[in-house]
Protein backbone atom coordinates (compact mmCIF):
# COMPACT_ATOMS: atom_id res chain seq x y z
CA UNK A 1 0.00 0.00 0.00
CA UNK A 2 2.72 2.48 0.96
CA UNK A 3 4.63 1.63 -2.18
CA UNK A 4 1.51 2.11 -4.23
CA UNK A 5 0.94 5.56 -2.80
CA UNK A 6 4.59 6.48 -3.35
CA UNK A 7 4.36 5.34 -6.97
CA UNK A 8 1.20 7.31 -7.52
CA UNK A 9 2.79 10.43 -6.02
CA UNK A 10 5.84 10.01 -8.27
CA UNK A 11 3.57 9.65 -11.28
CA UNK A 12 2.20 13.08 -10.49
CA UNK A 13 5.51 14.73 -11.35
CA UNK A 14 5.45 14.13 -15.11
CA UNK A 15 1.74 14.96 -15.23
CA UNK A 16 2.45 18.18 -13.39
CA UNK A 17 5.34 19.12 -15.68
CA UNK A 18 3.39 18.17 -18.80
CA UNK A 19 0.31 20.17 -17.93
CA UNK A 20 2.24 23.28 -16.90
CA UNK A 21 4.34 23.13 -20.05
CA UNK A 22 1.25 22.66 -22.19
CA UNK A 23 -0.56 25.66 -20.73
CA UNK A 24 2.63 27.67 -20.82
CA UNK A 25 3.15 26.90 -24.50
CA UNK A 26 -0.47 27.77 -25.26
CA UNK A 27 -0.13 31.14 -23.60
CA UNK A 28 3.09 31.71 -25.55
CA UNK A 29 1.42 30.82 -28.85
CA UNK A 30 -1.55 33.13 -28.36
CA UNK A 31 -1.36 36.36 -30.29
CA UNK A 32 -0.86 39.53 -28.29
CA UNK A 33 1.16 39.95 -25.12
CA UNK A 34 0.62 41.30 -21.61
CA UNK A 35 2.68 44.42 -22.13
CA UNK A 36 0.69 45.46 -25.17
CA UNK A 37 -2.52 44.56 -23.32
CA UNK A 38 -1.36 46.83 -20.54
CA UNK A 39 -0.99 49.73 -22.96
CA UNK A 40 -4.53 49.20 -24.22
CA UNK A 41 -5.59 51.75 -26.87
CA UNK A 42 -2.66 54.06 -26.36
CA UNK A 43 0.16 54.00 -28.85
CA UNK A 44 3.39 53.26 -27.14
CA UNK A 45 6.91 53.52 -28.35
CA UNK A 46 7.94 50.05 -29.60
CA UNK A 47 11.33 50.49 -28.03
CA UNK A 48 9.74 51.07 -24.66
CA UNK A 49 7.68 47.91 -25.06
CA UNK A 50 10.76 45.93 -26.00
CA UNK A 51 12.56 47.24 -22.94
CA UNK A 52 9.69 46.27 -20.66
CA UNK A 53 9.52 42.80 -22.16
CA UNK A 54 13.22 42.39 -21.64
CA UNK A 55 12.76 43.46 -18.04
CA UNK A 56 10.04 40.86 -17.49
CA UNK A 57 11.98 38.15 -19.28
CA UNK A 58 9.32 37.90 -21.98
CA UNK A 59 11.83 38.22 -24.79
CA UNK A 60 13.47 34.93 -23.86
CA UNK A 61 12.71 31.73 -25.81
CA UNK A 62 9.86 29.50 -24.56
CA UNK A 63 12.05 26.90 -22.83
CA UNK A 64 13.94 29.60 -20.94
CA UNK A 65 10.77 31.34 -19.79
CA UNK A 66 9.38 28.00 -18.68
CA UNK A 67 12.57 27.26 -16.78
CA UNK A 68 12.43 30.62 -15.02
CA UNK A 69 8.80 29.98 -14.12
CA UNK A 70 9.53 26.53 -12.72
CA UNK A 71 12.50 27.62 -10.64
CA UNK A 72 10.38 30.41 -9.26
CA UNK A 73 7.60 27.96 -8.49
CA UNK A 74 9.90 25.68 -6.51
CA UNK A 75 10.84 28.67 -4.39
CA UNK A 76 7.17 29.22 -3.72
CA UNK A 77 6.86 32.09 -6.18
CA UNK A 78 3.87 31.87 -8.51
CA UNK A 79 4.96 34.99 -10.36
CA UNK A 80 3.49 38.46 -10.49
CA UNK A 81 0.62 39.91 -12.49
CA UNK A 82 2.01 42.43 -14.93
CA UNK A 83 -0.97 44.76 -15.06
CA UNK A 84 -1.77 44.99 -11.36
CA UNK A 85 1.66 44.17 -10.01
CA UNK A 86 0.06 41.81 -7.50
CA UNK A 87 1.63 38.43 -6.77
CA UNK A 88 -0.28 35.60 -8.48
CA UNK A 89 -0.24 33.75 -5.16
CA UNK A 90 -2.47 36.50 -3.71
CA UNK A 91 -4.93 36.23 -6.56
CA UNK A 92 -5.09 32.47 -6.13
CA UNK A 93 -5.51 32.56 -2.37
CA UNK A 94 -8.37 35.00 -2.84
CA UNK A 95 -10.17 33.23 -5.65
CA UNK A 96 -9.57 29.61 -4.78
CA UNK A 97 -11.55 29.43 -1.54
CA UNK A 98 -14.61 30.78 -3.35
CA UNK A 99 -14.39 28.19 -6.09
CA UNK A 100 -13.64 25.43 -3.60
CA UNK A 101 -16.67 26.49 -1.57
CA UNK A 102 -18.88 26.44 -4.65
CA UNK A 103 -17.50 23.07 -5.70
CA UNK A 104 -17.89 21.49 -2.28
CA UNK A 105 -21.40 22.86 -1.97
CA UNK A 106 -22.32 21.40 -5.34
CA UNK A 107 -20.58 18.16 -4.38
CA UNK A 108 -22.47 17.86 -1.11
CA UNK A 109 -25.71 18.52 -2.96
CA UNK A 110 -24.83 15.89 -5.55
CA UNK A 111 -23.93 13.29 -2.94
CA UNK A 112 -26.87 13.82 -0.60
CA UNK A 113 -29.65 14.31 -3.09
CA UNK A 114 -28.24 12.06 -5.84
CA UNK A 115 -27.68 9.07 -3.59
CA UNK A 116 -31.02 9.53 -1.83
CA UNK A 117 -32.88 9.62 -5.13
CA UNK A 118 -30.91 6.63 -6.40
CA UNK A 119 -31.59 4.51 -3.32
CA UNK A 120 -35.22 5.53 -3.25
CA UNK A 121 -35.65 4.49 -6.89
CA UNK A 122 -33.42 1.41 -6.75
CA UNK A 123 -35.22 -0.12 -3.79
CA UNK A 124 -38.38 -0.14 -5.87
CA UNK A 125 -36.95 -0.64 -9.33
CA UNK A 126 -39.42 -0.70 -12.22
CA UNK A 127 -42.23 0.90 -10.26
CA UNK A 128 -43.88 4.21 -11.03
CA UNK A 129 -41.70 6.17 -8.63
CA UNK A 130 -38.58 4.63 -10.16
CA UNK A 131 -39.66 5.55 -13.69
CA UNK A 132 -40.60 9.08 -12.68
CA UNK A 133 -37.21 9.67 -11.09
CA UNK A 134 -35.46 8.24 -14.15
CA UNK A 135 -37.26 10.69 -16.39
CA UNK A 136 -36.31 13.56 -14.08
CA UNK A 137 -32.63 12.61 -14.20
CA UNK A 138 -32.80 12.27 -17.97
CA UNK A 139 -34.13 15.80 -18.14
CA UNK A 140 -31.28 17.10 -16.01
CA UNK A 141 -28.75 15.32 -18.20
CA UNK A 142 -30.14 16.67 -21.45
CA UNK A 143 -30.44 20.34 -20.42
CA UNK A 144 -27.07 22.16 -20.62
CA UNK A 145 -26.01 23.70 -17.34
CA UNK A 146 -25.92 27.27 -18.60
CA UNK A 147 -29.56 26.96 -19.69
CA UNK A 148 -30.37 25.66 -16.23
CA UNK A 149 -28.39 28.55 -14.77
CA UNK A 150 -30.29 31.17 -16.73
CA UNK A 151 -33.60 29.50 -15.95
CA UNK A 152 -32.73 29.49 -12.25
CA UNK A 153 -31.73 33.13 -12.40
CA UNK A 154 -34.85 34.04 -14.31
CA UNK A 155 -37.28 32.40 -11.90
CA UNK A 156 -35.61 32.78 -8.53
CA UNK A 157 -33.93 36.13 -9.04
CA UNK A 158 -36.03 38.06 -11.56
CA UNK A 159 -39.51 36.58 -11.14
CA UNK A 160 -39.64 35.60 -7.48
CA UNK A 161 -36.90 37.89 -6.23
CA UNK A 162 -35.71 35.29 -3.71
CA UNK A 163 -32.04 35.68 -4.55
CA UNK A 164 -29.75 38.21 -6.12
CA UNK A 165 -28.90 37.38 -9.73
CA UNK A 166 -25.24 38.15 -9.02
CA UNK A 167 -23.21 36.74 -6.19
CA UNK A 168 -21.39 39.32 -4.08
CA UNK A 169 -17.62 39.42 -3.58
CA UNK A 170 -17.90 37.55 -0.26
CA UNK A 171 -19.74 34.71 -1.99
CA UNK A 172 -21.42 33.53 1.24
CA UNK A 173 -22.98 30.07 1.53
CA UNK A 174 -26.57 31.17 1.06
CA UNK A 175 -25.66 33.16 -2.03
CA UNK A 176 -23.96 30.10 -3.45
CA UNK A 177 -27.01 27.86 -3.05
CA UNK A 178 -28.51 28.44 -6.49
CA UNK A 179 -25.15 28.30 -8.32
CA UNK A 180 -24.29 25.08 -6.46
CA UNK A 181 -27.58 23.46 -7.43
CA UNK A 182 -27.03 24.45 -11.05
CA UNK A 183 -23.44 23.24 -11.01
CA UNK A 184 -24.29 19.97 -9.29
CA UNK A 185 -27.38 19.03 -11.24
CA UNK A 186 -25.69 17.10 -14.03
CA UNK A 187 -23.55 15.09 -11.62
CA UNK A 188 -26.58 14.58 -9.46
CA UNK A 189 -28.42 12.96 -12.33
CA UNK A 190 -25.50 10.62 -13.03
CA UNK A 191 -25.07 9.75 -9.37
CA UNK A 192 -28.77 9.05 -9.00
CA UNK A 193 -28.82 6.74 -12.01
CA UNK A 194 -25.65 4.94 -11.01
CA UNK A 195 -26.88 4.47 -7.45
CA UNK A 196 -30.23 3.26 -8.65
CA UNK A 197 -28.73 0.61 -10.94
CA UNK A 198 -26.24 -0.49 -8.33
CA UNK A 199 -28.87 -0.77 -5.59
CA UNK A 200 -31.32 -2.64 -7.80
CA UNK A 201 -28.61 -5.05 -8.88
CA UNK A 202 -27.28 -5.75 -5.41
CA UNK A 203 -30.81 -6.16 -4.11
CA UNK A 204 -31.09 -9.30 -6.22
CA UNK A 205 -27.81 -10.75 -5.03
CA UNK A 206 -27.37 -13.96 -3.09
CA UNK A 207 -25.73 -12.30 -0.10
CA UNK A 208 -28.82 -10.13 0.38
CA UNK A 209 -30.91 -13.29 0.56
CA UNK A 210 -28.46 -14.60 3.17
CA UNK A 211 -28.81 -11.40 5.18
CA UNK A 212 -32.59 -11.87 5.25
CA UNK A 213 -32.20 -15.55 6.16
CA UNK A 214 -30.00 -14.51 9.09
CA UNK A 215 -32.98 -12.73 10.57
CA UNK A 216 -31.35 -9.31 10.48
CA UNK A 217 -33.62 -6.27 10.80
CA UNK A 218 -34.43 -4.50 7.55
CA UNK A 219 -32.55 -1.31 8.31
CA UNK A 220 -29.41 -3.33 8.90
CA UNK A 221 -29.88 -5.35 5.73
CA UNK A 222 -30.25 -2.16 3.70
CA UNK A 223 -27.94 0.09 5.67
CA UNK A 224 -25.00 -2.26 6.05
CA UNK A 225 -25.21 -5.12 3.58
CA UNK A 226 -26.80 -3.40 0.62
CA UNK A 227 -25.22 0.03 0.94
CA UNK A 228 -21.64 -1.11 1.49
CA UNK A 229 -21.77 -2.95 -1.81
CA UNK A 230 -23.90 -0.52 -3.80
CA UNK A 231 -21.73 2.47 -2.99
CA UNK A 232 -18.53 1.07 -4.51
CA UNK A 233 -19.14 2.23 -8.11
CA UNK A 234 -20.75 5.45 -6.86
CA UNK A 235 -17.73 6.45 -4.82
CA UNK A 236 -15.45 5.87 -7.79
CA UNK A 237 -17.62 8.08 -9.91
CA UNK A 238 -17.83 10.79 -7.27
CA UNK A 239 -14.06 10.90 -7.01
CA UNK A 240 -13.49 11.65 -10.66
CA UNK A 241 -16.50 13.91 -10.60
CA UNK A 242 -15.03 16.22 -8.00
CA UNK A 243 -12.47 17.34 -10.57
CA UNK A 244 -15.14 17.75 -13.22
CA UNK A 245 -17.21 19.86 -10.84
CA UNK A 246 -14.25 22.12 -10.28
CA UNK A 247 -13.95 22.59 -14.04
CA UNK A 248 -17.69 23.19 -14.29
CA UNK A 249 -17.46 25.77 -11.54
CA UNK A 250 -15.48 27.97 -13.93
CA UNK A 251 -18.53 28.15 -16.23
CA UNK A 252 -21.05 28.54 -13.43
CA UNK A 253 -19.02 31.42 -12.01
CA UNK A 254 -19.44 33.14 -15.36
CA UNK A 255 -23.23 32.83 -15.24
CA UNK A 256 -23.59 34.13 -11.70
CA UNK A 257 -20.70 36.59 -11.83
CA UNK A 258 -18.83 34.94 -8.99
CA UNK A 259 -15.28 36.25 -8.47
CA UNK A 260 -13.69 32.85 -8.19
CA UNK A 261 -11.07 31.01 -10.14
CA UNK A 262 -13.13 30.98 -13.32
CA UNK A 263 -13.49 34.72 -13.35
CA UNK A 264 -9.77 35.16 -12.79
CA UNK A 265 -8.86 32.74 -15.56
CA UNK A 266 -11.01 34.64 -18.04
CA UNK A 267 -9.57 37.91 -16.88
CA UNK A 268 -6.01 36.63 -17.08
CA UNK A 269 -6.60 35.15 -20.52
CA UNK A 270 -7.88 38.45 -21.79
CA UNK A 271 -4.80 40.25 -20.57
CA UNK A 272 -2.42 37.45 -21.55
CA UNK A 273 -1.28 37.06 -17.97
CA UNK A 274 0.53 33.76 -18.53
CA UNK A 275 1.67 33.23 -14.94
CA UNK A 276 -1.86 33.59 -13.57
CA UNK A 277 -3.39 31.15 -16.04
CA UNK A 278 -0.64 28.57 -15.59
CA UNK A 279 -0.79 28.88 -11.81
CA UNK A 280 -4.53 28.36 -11.59
CA UNK A 281 -4.67 25.54 -14.11
CA UNK A 282 -1.78 23.78 -12.39
CA UNK A 283 -3.54 24.00 -9.07
CA UNK A 284 -6.71 22.52 -10.56
CA UNK A 285 -4.67 19.68 -12.04
CA UNK A 286 -3.02 18.98 -8.69
CA UNK A 287 -6.38 18.97 -6.90
CA UNK A 288 -7.67 16.55 -9.51
CA UNK A 289 -4.68 14.22 -9.12
CA UNK A 290 -4.84 14.22 -5.34
CA UNK A 291 -8.58 13.57 -5.18
CA UNK A 292 -8.33 10.72 -7.64
CA UNK A 293 -5.58 9.14 -5.52
CA UNK A 294 -7.72 9.53 -2.41
CA UNK A 295 -10.65 7.95 -4.20
CA UNK A 296 -8.57 4.98 -5.29
CA UNK A 297 -7.48 4.46 -1.71
CA UNK A 298 -11.05 4.78 -0.49
CA UNK A 299 -12.06 2.27 -3.13
CA UNK A 300 -9.66 -0.27 -1.62
CA UNK A 301 -11.13 0.38 1.81
CA UNK A 302 -14.68 -0.18 0.53
CA UNK A 303 -13.88 -3.25 -1.52
CA UNK A 304 -11.44 -5.65 0.16
CA UNK A 305 -11.11 -7.61 -3.09
CA UNK A 306 -9.07 -4.69 -4.44
CA UNK A 307 -5.48 -4.74 -3.30
CA UNK A 308 -2.87 -2.28 -4.53
CA UNK A 309 0.68 -3.42 -4.71
Amino acid sequence: MGRYVARRLLQMIPVFLGSTLLVFAMMYALPGDPVRALAGEQTVDPAQIAAMKKDLGLDLPLWHQYWNYLTGLFQGDFGTQIASGRPVADIISEAFPITVRLTLFAFAFTVLVGISIGVFAGLKADTLRDRALLVLTLLLISVPSFVLGFLGQYFFAFQLGWVDPNVSVEASWDELFLPAVVLGSLSLAYVARLTRTSVAENLRSDYMRTAVAKGLPRRRIIGVHLMRNSMIPVVTFLGTDLGALMGGAVVTEGIFNIKGVGYNIFDALRHREGATVVGIVTLIVVVYLVTSLLVDLLYAVLDPRIRYA
Binding site: Y207, R209, T210, K214, L216, P217, D303
Partner: peptide, 25 residues
Protein backbone atom coordinates in the same frame (compact mmCIF):
# COMPACT_ATOMS: atom_id res chain seq x y z
CA UNK B 1 -40.96 -14.47 11.44
CA UNK B 2 -37.72 -12.52 11.51
CA UNK B 3 -37.09 -13.69 15.05
CA UNK B 4 -37.46 -17.29 13.92
CA UNK B 5 -35.03 -16.84 11.05
CA UNK B 6 -31.47 -17.44 12.09
CA UNK B 7 -32.40 -18.24 15.68
CA UNK B 8 -34.79 -21.17 15.22
CA UNK B 9 -34.47 -22.03 11.54
CA UNK B 10 -31.27 -21.39 9.64
CA UNK B 11 -30.38 -21.92 6.02
CA UNK B 12 -27.24 -22.92 4.14
CA UNK B 13 -27.06 -21.99 0.47
CA UNK B 14 -25.45 -23.65 -2.47
CA UNK B 15 -22.90 -21.07 -3.52
CA UNK B 16 -21.05 -19.81 -0.47
CA UNK B 17 -18.99 -17.31 -2.45
CA UNK B 18 -21.97 -15.36 -3.69
CA UNK B 19 -24.00 -15.99 -0.54
CA UNK B 20 -21.48 -14.33 1.73
CA UNK B 21 -21.17 -10.57 1.60
CA UNK B 22 -17.96 -9.85 -0.36
CA UNK B 23 -17.07 -6.62 1.43
CA UNK B 24 -17.49 -7.73 5.04
CA UNK B 25 -15.02 -9.95 6.88
Amino acid sequence: RRLIRGQKIAMIFQDALSSLNPVLS
